[in-house]
């Protein structure tokens, strides 16, 4: 049986899926990146191999997306290395062909994608600031001493969400501390945080965009039912979350891998190879480009980051 592997290596979590030729998900894996994308991908590969080992599947293509797409794509010899917007749109469309709006909040990025007849017509991403993204929520959860996974449940138990300024993470933190000291209930503060994430998103990333249904809410933050409910209240319409919502990017890149497949069989033993990466500051000129060199079993396989020939590294 033929299969294709898609990987979405984000700042917070790493997702992997294997699909068959009809784009059905055969196996999936989802775990924390923990600041080490290479290690996380190895773990994902171990999990995926375990899940499909009884079903003679040949992986004929690898696709990567997410912020570490280039690094992992190079390591695994991927046939498709694509940005998150395209990967998410393609993944979601394969499951929901009529979707008009995709709201996505990830670890450090948030984006909105508008579609019409299965084509991306407009999109926006947060520009410089990561306020209101997953990393913001998890750091606030830590401050309140609760697990980010329980965040949604606690939020739903609140009847009276406190309003919290979430325009800027730093302001939100001081507002949060202030509210705690004033004596607000924890659950109300948590619900307030969920609302502020949703309204911050709608006022920044989604500003000026016509949000039409069906609306899908994706990304790690979509697992938080508190934020989902906040979106539904603010948009006054139903927001769909898929149980595989976090896998859409990986699914999209698997589909792209299928499309670009060179029909070479991917070998899972690659996970046992020793990959090393190091950043070298090129001293060729005053730009001091950071050149990333990737080594496999001690042999250089690729390097990038240089702006001119002076920083070129011979492979």
């Amino acid at each position: 049986m033929k299969g294709y592997l898609g990987l979405d290596i984000g700042s917070i979590s790493t997702k992997g899926v294997i699909i068959d030729e009809k784009k059905n998900i055969l196996a999936s894996s989802y775990l924390w990146t923990e600041g080490n994308p290479v290690q996380a991908v190895k773990k994902v590969l171990v999990e995926l191999e375990e899940k499909i080992k009884d079903r003679k599947i040949k992986i004929l293509g690898v696709g990567t997306t997410g912020s570490a797409r280039k690094l992992i794509g190079t390591m695994l010899g991927a046939c498709s290395i694509k940005n998150e917007i395209t990967a998410h749109a393609i993944g979601t469309l394969s499951k929901y062909p009529t979707v008009k709006t995709i709201l996505e909040i990830g670890g450090q990025d948030s984006k909105i994608i508008l579609l019409e007849d299965g084509m991306v017509t407009d999109y926006a991403m947060n520009t410089l600031c990561a306020a209101g993204t997953g990393s913001f929520l998890s750091s606030q959860a830590k401050r309140l001493g609760i697990d980010v996974k329980d965040f949604g449940k606690i939020a739903l138990s609140s009847k009276n969400p406190t309003s919290i300024a979430a325009r800027c993470t730093v302001f939100a933190e001081s507002d949060l501390v202030h509210k705690i000291q004033m004596g607000y209930e924890k659950k109300d503060i948590i619900a307030g945080l969920c609302y502020s994430v949703a309204s911050n998103y709608l006022n920044n990333v989604a500003k000026g965009k016509k949000i039409k249904g069906p609306i899908l809410f994706q990304g790690g933050v979509s697992k938080n039912i508190g934020v989902k409910k906040a979106f539904e209240d603010l948009l006054k319409t139903e927001v769909i979350t898929d149980k595989n919502g976090h896998l859409m990017g990986a699914l999209g890149s698997a589909i792209l891998a299928k499309k670009n497949s060179k029909n070479e069989v991917f070998d899972f033993s690659l996970k046992d190879a020793i990959f090393e990466t190091n950043g070298i500051e090129c001293k060729g000129c005053e730009n001091h480009c950071e050149v990333i060199v990737v080594k496999k079993d001690g042999k250089k396989i690729d390097a990038w980051g240089n702006r001119c020939e002076k920083g070129m590294i011979k492979i």
Binding site: K82, N83, E84, I85, T86, V120, Y123
Partner: peptide, 15 residues
């Protein structure tokens, strides 16, 4: 590059 690449994909009318 993430933003530029997706912008170009969009101009092409999606894949």
């Amino acid at each position: 590059i993430t933003r530029l690449e997706s912008f170009l994909d969009m101009l092409k009318g999606g894949i």
